[in-house]
Structure formats: structure tokens, C-alpha cells
Design a protein around this nucleic acid. Sequence first.
DNA 1: TCAAGTTAGTGTACAAATTACACTCTAAAC
DNA 2: GTTTAGAGTGTAATTTGTACACTAACTTGA
Lengths: 229, 229
Amino acid sequence: MSHTYEYPRAALAVDCVVFGLDETDLKVLLIQRKLQPFQHAWALPGGFVRMDETIDNAARRELEEEAGVSDVYLEQLYTFGAMHRDPRERVVTVAYYALAKLSDHRIRAATDAMGVGWFALDALPKLAFDHSEIVSRAHERLRGKVRYAPVGFELLPPRFSLTQLQRLYEIILGTELDKRNFRKKILSLDLIVETDEVEQGVRHRAARLYRFDRRKYDRLAKQGFELSI
Amino acid sequence: MSHTYEYPRAALAVDCVVFGLDETDLKVLLIQRKLQPFQHAWALPGGFVRMDETIDNAARRELEEEAGVSDVYLEQLYTFGAMHRDPRERVVTVAYYALAKLSDHRIRAATDAMGVGWFALDALPKLAFDHSEIVSRAHERLRGKVRYAPVGFELLPPRFSLTQLQRLYEIILGTELDKRNFRKKILSLDLIVETDEVEQGVRHRAARLYRFDRRKYDRLAKQGFELSI
DNA sequence: TCAAGTTAGTGTACAAATTACACTCTAAAC
DNA sequence: GTTTAGAGTGTAATTTGTACACTAACTTGA
């Protein structure tokens, strides 16, 4: 039986929700659109997928090109294909979320230079297309995932204090945690280990810095260990 | 600034992993391909997305057309876009997973008639394309989700015994559970309620049948309640 | 140098949840 | 009426989670 392949082709795009964490807030990186539609509106970094690259690659490329962001944790989130989400024509977008270390000077420098903005998640401007919906879903996913996967560390510098880690969970989960109970639990996992470094340049007692032992985690995970925070 | 829209267009498809549960196994519905490529090989039901339907609709339509399956729980899983996953050309597929009640006579009848097959998850034949990878990811998602969301009930008839429910969790999670502890925990949630019906046609003491109180669950979920099994 | 300010760091008692475990009850089939 | 198959039930021990408040270390500025 002979067969020719005739079927509709959608324009396929990617969009990325890049999260960053500062002292008090979870932030999202946005870019201001230069072109119609939604000219001048804030939007997620993203663009069309090329025929010679995977979708993951398209996401990384657009992050680099549009926002100067590279070397981040990146995970596919959901594919949005509502009929009129783009007023021009049918565009299906594969959404990703990324976790960036705001403390990373390269990220700071790159995003400062390119006219992009970091916005607190609870004070976002109106966004282009269905990007608000994408951000909501990304936040939801992050909230869920942070409790059973070691993704939070992607938002922190490689060495961090236990207070920083606690703040991270408080900010993402939106709850207050008890300091002593948190430390007890975290340290009992034996995956967050002391270093001989301490916080620098603070005007109070310097906190001891810890690091996440990813090797150990990976080893345990292979043996069926399940994290739970 | 004028602008014309010139970008590559990928062929966009959907594929569905339909799960069903019998007495001893989690099963997956497969169809045998009639055409090249992978002619005669078993594959997931699926097909191309049309320009005038959403991706979700495409998934439901293909399920109905190719496998006679309708009225199932359906959730988007992941989008697969490796370069050569389809040997003909670039095809990106949005994968879904569905939970069907094998006890539903309509499902039974439809799938019997259409030359489709139910295969135990741990004894699948070789599959076309990257469909094995899609099935793995669907199974992983189901295992994760069944513990904090009430999706298991989608695999059971509306009235079920506690033993059936326990088997469901044992089969999906791949662990044995203690009968008394399981019942204590499940009933303490107060979401699985007794009916006045009992199992029929068994050659031993008939088990009492229960139902899941979805209204109550939805109400609690809105107030921030989180299920955990 | 000392007083004030700021965050780091630490333990215990109580409550709640989870685990381990074995027998009697009921109905059908023969 | 005996056998068979699974239904149904409680308690004690252990583990885990929760509530809670003070001292230690360092910096800054008077």
C-alpha cells in the first residue's frame, strides 16, 4: 500500500519560565516584546523550534539568545495548544521551567545587559499570550517537586547556610517552618553536609555553610530511596 | 515593522498510554500497525493533530477512532521530540495517559471488536517508534500520582471492595501492603464510604462494597487538603 | 571597651502516625 | 456438615512530627 504523508503542521514553539530566588522572593525572568502581537508587553523567553534541533535544545537556545541564560536546570513542563492562544495563527508551545542561581554572576551580568527583568512571582505584570497560565502551572510544579526531589539546590549557590535553605522551602511552599525541626530533619537525611566555610560579609555571627551531596543522593535514589521534605 | 511568519512546522501527533487493571496486572492497550513504518508492530493508539482541534481533543478522538475507547480519565504526560523518533521525518508527539475501567462493558466490547490488545505492563511486546519509552514514563507518572491524587479510582468500578482497592495500590506501587493497616488508613480519610451493596458471584464470603466520595474530596482539596497514601 | 543589635545554633517532652502481627466470621461448594 | 476461600477486626511498640526559648558569636557604633 502506497502512502503519502499529508497532515497539518502546527507552528511549534517553546517558552521558558525561569525561576530565581533572592532573600525574600521567588522571581521569574521576563522579556519585553519588541514586536506585535503584544508589542511592549512582558512575556516568557521563548521562540520557534527549528527542524534540526530537539525541543530541549530549542528551549536552551532561546534562553541563551533571548535572555543570556545558560547552564541552568531545565525541565519540560507541559504543552499548551489552545486554539487561539496566539492571535496570529495556530501555535503550539512546549513550556519548560528552569531554575537559575541568581547568585551566579554570569546570570546576573547576562540578564542585566539584555533588557530583561526579574519579577517577584506574586507581583507579575500582565503577560502576553497565555503566559500567566504557564507561569501558574510552573509554580505549581515547582511547589510539588521541591518536596520529593532535590531541585531546590538549583536555586542556591553551591555552598549555602541552613537558614538560606529553610527560607527557600518557606518561600516556595508558602509556609513557615520551625528552625530546630527543619534542621533536625534536613541533617538526619545525611545528604546536606557541613563544609569548613562560613558566610562572608554579614554583620552578625557567620553561619556555617553546607553543600548538597548529589553523588550520595544519586546512589541512594538508584536503590529506591525517596526523598521527602 | 512588518513581519511575515516563516518558520518550520513540525508534524504534530498525539499518542496515548491507556491503562487498565485486572485481578493481577496493570495492562496497557496497544494496537497493531497496519502501515509502514513498523508495519504489524504493536504501538500506542495515536495520530496526527488537526488544525481545528486542541491537542486534548486529538487524543480523545484518536482513542475513540483507533481503539473505541471513550469516557476515560485523560492527562497530558510529556512531549517527545527526538530528531529521528519517526524514521520518515520529523514528528513531535504529545503523549497522554488514560485510565480506563476494564470492568466497563463498553470498553470491553469496543476493544474486543477492534483488533486491539491489552498487554500486561511487565510483558509488553516490542513497540514501534519510541513507544516503550513513552510507556515507561507513563508508568512512572502513574506510580507517583496515585499516592497523592485520587486517580486510582479511575481504574476501578464505581463500587469496589477494600481488597480490590488494596490490590490496586499493590499492583501500581509494586509493594505488598498490610491488610489491617491499609484499611485503617483508607477509612480514616473518610473519603471512601460504605455502601449497602456487597460483591456478587464470589464463592466465599461476599465483601462489602465502597465508593469514593469525590464531591467531598473536591471540597477538601479546595481548602488545601492534600491526600497521601 | 562596652552596649546594642542581629542571626546562629541547640534539646526535650508530648502527640500523632506507622508498623507488626493472628485469629474468628461468613458464605458457597461439595 | 465439612471444607474452602477470603472478609473482617484491635492492640502494643516504634518511629516520626510538633511545639517551644534560650545562649553563643559576631558586628557596629557610641
